[in-house]
Nucleic acid binder design. Structure first.
Length: 105
DNA sequence: TCACTGACGGGGC
DNA sequence: CGCCCCGCCAGTG
């Protein structure tokens, strides 16, 4: 597996329960700013790994669950997030800025 | 080898 | 505020 993927997975695994992050932020954190699409692509291949990669905690910059169709059931991603205390309305995380994970600073 | 495709994001109009 | 275009770069046919 690529170093790029490994780094993306390492970051995503650090997202604490109850928090979420965005593709763009993660791309920047792995040192490949602007490559948010690659992060999404990496998530697409992140299933079945161990330790597990909480891909459901990664949404787009608007807090919208754009990747829900890749969890088998279209409702799974939303349910996982709700289990962690989030409120989702119309595929969008409510109070997104409040639960957005921002390491350091 | 070339062309196209994305779980995206930002800028221009 | 909405729509369109372009850069990002690994995979795939």
């Amino acid at each position: 597996m690529n170093e790029f993927y490994e780094r993306v997975y390492a970051i995503v695994r650090k997202i604490p329960r109850g928090k979420v992050s965005t593709y763009g932020d993660i791309a920047e954190m792995v040192g490949s700013k602007g490559s948010a699409r690659m992060v999404g692509y990496a998530m697409n291949h992140a299933h079945g790994l161990s330790p597990a990669v909480p891909a459901h905690r990664v949404v787009n910059r608007n807090g919208v669950l754009t990747g829900k169709h890749h969890f088998g059931m279209p409702t799974l991603m939303q349910q996982l997030l709700e289990n962690e205390g989030h409120v989702i309305l119309h595929d969008q995380i409510q109070d997104f800025e409040k639960v957005r994970w921002k390491p350091r600073k």
